[in-house]
């Protein structure tokens, strides 16, 4: 960013503050240029990269059952002890979770549960708008986890969006356009 200019200035430039004027000219140009920030949450939303670790989700297999075998390894490895799993045996004789709760208020999104899972069930997805005014709402259950958004396939882009105001306000992407790469906005043409 900072171009270090070490060339020596003459005393005339020093007397008439050429460098100060240069700074003022730069900020004046910025003052009347377009803004480059995201207009989140009203008009734009950032879709995170697939590597992003957000709200958890649980994968299901082709028959509609969850992959999870309720081995409780995720619960054991969790450093902040935020996962509660209670197993049961379903009609087909498979071991499945009866209760699978994650307390998002305690979770630090480290992704260890994802690593520990032997059944490719629990993953960390793209959702990052999980705020709430009540801490009870932050305990998510099995059905929430199944319904939660998967990893993004169009990550690293800014999409058109609008704010949906209900109990838990969220910015929802709209339109079908692909969005654009934000870094284009700040690339300098020199």
């Amino acid at each position: 960013m900072a171009r270090s200019s070490t060339h020596k200035r003459s005393w005339i430039g020093w007397v008439f503050f050429t460098d100060l004027w240069g700074g003022l000219r730069l900020t004046l140009r910025y003052m009347f240029s377009k803004t480059i920030t995201h207009h989140y949450p009203d008009f734009e939303k950032w879709v995170p990269y697939p590597r992003h670790r957000g709200h958890h989700f649980i994968k299901t297999n082709d028959e509609g059952d969850v992959n999870c075998v309720a081995c409780e390894l995720c619960s054991k490895i969790c450093p902040c002890d935020c996962i509660t799993v209670i197993p049961f045996e379903d009609a087909k004789g498979n071991r499945r979770p009866e209760v699978f709760d994650i307390d998002l208020a305690r979770c630090l999104y480290c992704g260890l549960c994802e690593d520990a899972c032997p059944a490719d069930a629990i993953k960390l997805g793209q959702e990052y708008e999980v705020s709430s005014t009540r801490s009870e709402n932050l305990v998510v259950h099995l059905e929430d986890l199944i319904a939660a958004p998967r990893k993004s396939d169009n990550g690293g882009q800014v999409m058109a969006a609008k704010l949906v105001k209900d109990e838990a306000p969220k910015s929802v992407t709209t339109g079908t356009s692909d969005g654009f790469d934000w870094w284009e906005r700040i690339s300098r043409k020199e």
Binding site: K34, T37, D42
Partner: peptide
């Protein structure tokens, strides 16, 4: 607003 626009952001909106 001036601070924001000098830093190329919209400021309080």
């Amino acid at each position: 607003k001036i601070a924001a626009h000098i830093q190329q952001r919209p400021g309080p909106m």
